[in-house]
Design a protein around this nucleic acid. Sequence first.
DNA 1: GCCAACGTTGGC
DNA 2: GCCAACGTTGGC
Length: 155
Amino acid sequence: MKYWLLKSEPDTFSITDLKARPRRTEHWDGVRNYQARNYIREMQKGDHAFFYHSSCAEPGVVGTVTVVSDPYPDFTAFDPHNPHYDPKSTPDHPRWFMVDVRHDKTFRNTVGLQQLKECRELTGFALLNRGNRLSIMPVTASQWRFINSLAGEGA
DNA sequence: GCCAACGTTGGC
DNA sequence: GCCAACGTTGGC
């Protein structure tokens, strides 16, 4: 089982939105970056991920989700009316993939980006790498436990 | 295959 | 809104 971090702008789709979905589950669509796509293809049902809010007043890790599907083609790429439409991705030869994620928990307090930066334990954490703009990145088991402990939620 | 131009991300 | 950083595009 692996661990991940998923970024989203809360104005577009927040952890509260996910929790409000039927079965607290939604597909994680719209990833259009090859490196992030490759991470999605490594995901397996049962993996866990942090939900990260970006481009907002308080950027940081706001909770956790569970991956509840294996990767499958991102059908929003096939829809000419979708903002993430990509004519080069077809049902026969899909270029982009997604998984379904289910809300697990919302932290009582956001673990802020600033707080993460101050932790020696998180040296090397992908999120903190200079200039990192990836919307999906891997998290190690020890990083997973540590950030959960920062949230005061155990792991 | 190089690289300049352009678009996007995301913290501040 | 600014700007650094990075990815993508497209001419050559």
